[in-house]
Design a protein around this nucleic acid. Structure first.
Length: 391
DNA sequence: CTAGGGTTAG
């Protein structure tokens, strides 16, 4: 039907309103046109609206098919309604003999994003004839839960079963290498990407930069950055972070400046990386200047993590009292990390007296005692052994 | 008409 084609064309071009209009004007709404308008809303991230349309469709006595269900699963996932994914699943499991491929693939992602990894795995195991999307989905699920080794093992199994990774598959595998700081494996994948002639799109390129950064290879990260035809704010953040997390604050700032000159606005993540690098390197002036610019120039409100970097910086200078004062005046709720920043400074300067005071206050207000207790006992130990040395 | 991808650091 020509009207359905119109709905789809508008939807593909990002013209949701036009797609809706075309749908509304249709005299006879077929299953395919209903599915198209639901899919259009999913494509635009409007899960709730998609679900409402699905109900409307059922009220007009149109019977959904497997394609509709697949689309509805994506809509439910977008809305975080995983329990309802279960309902869809049990609805259809009686209709189809084994799990429908696309529906199963959608369920793997839905469960891994708003349900449990176990449910995702169970769907993966029950798809009789998997394809590359099934493998990609389950590997992305493992990465989401931090099981990086499992991701790489599934990669091997995938090859054994005769599937070759594509551009999207590589992203999860690169992420797994980043999580494990597995440089050799990461380099191998990078070489495969090149030999497969896959172009470095924004996401894949950014994943590579992130991976090399976490493996301490900033130069290679830069090379990837230079090769990328298209970059976005996440790409810029990755290259800034690559330098920041390896202590090269000079280069981090250099890219920060380049980022601005290229018309990309720094955001919360950019400042997190830079501030934590400053805290790490003890760069007080740079850190505070940065935090000031963050608010005044960019209008970004610092989070507690940003403030913790500043508290830590004061502490490193031995200005624990000033750190405490700052902590008492920040417009956000201090966390265990805030206290840890202060206590860590006391430990660094082996200031037992101040440390005991800080710990006392911390324990009064902060429920997470464990990590703080460890730092405190380390401080006490350091204090005792320093007395021993001087005697 | 349908399925898979991303940022801080602690």
């Amino acid at each position: 039907m020509i009207e359905t084609a119109l709905v789809n064309t508008y939807s593909m071009c990002g013209e949701l309103e036009m797609a809706r209009r075309s749908f509304r004007d249709m005299n006879i709404k077929s299953l395919v046109s209903w599915t198209s308008i639901i899919a259009a809303h999913v494509r635009h991230g409007l899960g709730r609206d998609a679900i409402m349309l699905f109900s409307e469709m059922q009220m007009s006595s149109v019977i959904p098919n497997d394609v509709t269900y697949t689309t509805v699963i994506s809509a439910l996932r977008l809305s975080g309604l995983c329990i309802d994914c279960n309902l869809v699943y049990y609805c259809i499991v009686g209709i189809y003999e084994s799990i429908h491929l696309q529906m199963g693939n959608a369920l793997i992602t839905a469960y891994s994003k708003c349900g449990s990894l176990d449910d995702a795995i169970s769907i993966f195991c029950r798809i009789a004839l998997r394809d590359i999307v099934s493998w990609t989905s389950i590997m992305a699920a493992y990465v989401r839960y931090g099981f990086f080794q499992c991701t790489l093992q599934h990669n091997e199994q995938m090859w054994l079963e005769g599937f070759l990774p594509d551009r999207i598959t590589f992203i999860s595998m690169i992420d797994a290498c980043a999580g494990n700081a597995a440089l050799m494996e990461g380099k191998k994948l990078h070489m495969q990407i090149e030999s497969f002639n896959l172009n470095l799109d924004v996401v894949l390129g950014t994943a590579l930069i992130d991976m090399y950064g976490k493996c301490g290879k900033q130069q290679i990260a830069e090379r990837v950055f230079d090769q990328m035809p298209v970059r976005n704010s996440l790409t810029w953040n990755s290259i800034v972070t690559a330098h920041a997390q390896n202590g090269d604050i000079k280069q981090a700032f250099a890219y920060f400046t380049r980022m601005e000159n290229n018309g990309v606005q720094p955001d919360i993540a950019t400042f997190s990386s830079i501030l934590s690098a400053c805290a790490h390197a003890g760069l007080v002036e740079e850190g505070f200047k940065c935090a000031l610019a963050m608010q005044q120039t960019y209008g970004i409100h610092p989070t507690v993590e940003h403030y913790n970097c500043l508290i830590g910086l004061l502490g490193r200078l031995g200005l624990v009292k000033d750190g405490k004062c700052l902590m008492g005046n920040i417009p956000v709720q201090p966390t265990a990390s805030s206290w840890a920043a202060l206590l860590g400074a006391c430990k660094e300067h082996v200031d037992l007296q101040e440390g005991e005071l800080v710990a006392e206050h911390a324990f009064e207000t902060c429920p997470e005692r464990q990590s703080l207790s460890i730092v405190l006992s380390e401080l006490r130990l350091a204090a005792v052994s320093s007395i021993g040395m001087s005697v």
